[in-house]
Nucleic acid binder design. Structure first.
Ligand code: ZN
Ligand code: ZN
Ligand code: ZN
Ligand code: ZN
Lengths: 141, 141
DNA sequence: GCCGGTATTGTTATGTTATATCATTCGACC
DNA sequence: GGTCGAATGATATAACATAACAATACCGGC
């Protein structure tokens, strides 16, 4: 999947990059860079330095395979890396999972505010919601 | 202003806290914690350690006088600290200024998505927009 | 005024996240 | 096989943030 997209785009999903992406898939949760470093280290049975992982993350983010959760300093796989999208992250403060949702309406409102009220030219949006997921929210009485 | 609100709320705007708030007001821009530390150090002509500033920031954020910009690791004064509000930050990548805008509609859409699509209980929202402000955006031809 | 408890600040150390820099290796192409 | 640019390795350090405990300030009751 990511391999295909990389081929199409003429960029290389090298071993290091693929490994980081796999780790994030397996984790399923937003994961910190240093946690990735540790896991990689164990798997490869040799030292992995921060730049290795940060460079891989930079690539994966640029290619749209991974998002950074700014409010957590954590990284998570994108659920639809094949197209540009305006997404919202819902991050559970209890169990740590995050859910990515697409909602053009939010992006449109933001862009509208930017244009009409500020004359601001939008290049990117960070929308991250804190709270508790369904599993971690006790049912209403 | 902040002094009044603190009195109402029965909390103290001590010297350290007031100084940090003043610095942020003067700066007018999102400012990093370590920049605040340096400036404080110079003004007071004595060493200022990180916990001093981080504790002040924590207080100011709790009281709603200051916001943290997660995507910048920077802190900025709130433009309407007297009431709870759902705000959006527009951050210029060029000159660094940020504009805070209130828009309930965005918050409502987010909450709607959270409820209807995820069963997610929202406790907080981070909405930060990257781009260029009016001054830094060349006029259309 | 003094005492005792609580909030705040000082101090030191350390944890966590991220990047700069330069050397080395890899891989495609000629 | 030699050349060039991309990618990785390796070391160091920058930037951001908190833990832990000691010292001090503040405020009530006495
Ligand atoms: Zn995505
Ligand atoms: Zn949860
Ligand atoms: Zn505000
Ligand atoms: Zn600007």
């Amino acid at each position: 999947m990511a391999t295909l997209l990389c081929n199409e785009r003429g960029v290389k999903l090298t071993a290091a990059r693929r490994q980081v992406l796999e780790l994030l898939w397996e984790s399923g949760c937003p994961t910190g860079a240093y946690e990735l470093i540790e896991t990689l280290q164990q798997r490869n049975a040799r030292p992995v330095n921060p730049p290795t992982v940060y460079r891989a993350l930079e690539f994966l983010i640029t290619q749209g395979f991974v998002h950074k959760l700014e409010s957590r300093n954590a990284y998570v796989v994108c659920i639809h890396p094949d197209r540009r999208h305006a997404c919202i992250f819902f991050i559970c403060a209890d169990c740590g999972v995050s859910a990515e949702l697409e909602d053009e309406r939010v992006a449109d409102l933001i862009d509208e505010d930017a244009n009409d009220r500020l004359g601001f030219h939008v290049t990117g949006r960070v929308v991250e919601v804190q709270g508790t997921c369904r599993q971690c929210t006790p049912a209403e009485p």
